[in-house]
């Protein structure tokens, strides 16, 4: 009776000791890692701090202006380039029979969504090229503004072919500025 108890106690003590050492080693390993990580965090913070200053330095408005003048074909926005959809002149409903591009558009868009709500957009699209400024390459705000409501319509088209068809239609309408219609500028 005495002997098994001693044995159990002894083995318990050994196990407890073993676990204790195990934990102690683990803790010291973790602490080492913590120190390394903390050091790294401090270093990263310092780096971020320096990078923030550099970011601000590189973003000097004067420098950006110079870069934009050299590499972009953009120019400051003028008041006359801004307008509202409501301010566009009213236009009679387009006749699909006389306009094959619109007919293609209608054929693709019709199953996805009733077109009645989009009708003013279509007219806005058609009206836009006439007001396009003479410079062909300059991305005009006007064109972009008029075409903005197009993107939700694109999203509703389920099949990719819808989008392709729309892109093609837009290209037909806008000529080489079609790439701007999606809102992307070079």
């Amino acid at each position: 009776m005495k002997r098994p108890a001693t044995l159990i106690l002894f083995s318990l003590a050994v196990v407890a000791g073993g676990v204790l050492f195990g934990i102690a080693f683990e803790v010291s390993a973790l602490e080492e890692r913590l120190t390394v990580l903390n050091k790294q965090i401090t270093q990263d913070r310092d780096t971020i701090h320096v990078l923030r200053a550099e970011w601000s330095y590189l973003n000097q408005p004067e420098r950006l202006e110079d870069l934009s003048r050299r590499y972009l074909e953009l120019q400051p926005l003028e008041g006359s380039q801004l307008s509202e959809i409501a301010a566009l002149p009213a236009r009679r409903a387009p006749d699909p029979a006389a306009d094959p591009v619109l007919a293609a558009l209608l054929a693709d868009a019709a199953p996805a969504k009733p077109l009645s709500a989009d009708a003013p957009i279509a007219s806005a699209l058609n009206a836009a090229p006439k007001q396009r400024p003479a410079a062909p390459h300059r991305p005009s705000r006007h064109v972009r503004l008029a075409s903005q409501p197009v993107s939700p319509a694109t999203a509703t088209g389920t099949a990719a072919s819808d989008k392709a068809a729309l892109d093609e239609a837009l290209r037909a309408i806008f000529g080489n500025t079609a790439s701007n219609a999606g809102g992307a500028s070079r």
Partner: peptide, 10 residues
Amino acid sequence: ARNIAVETQM
């Protein structure tokens, strides 16, 4: 003391 990384000295 060990848990917090040193803030950037400023």
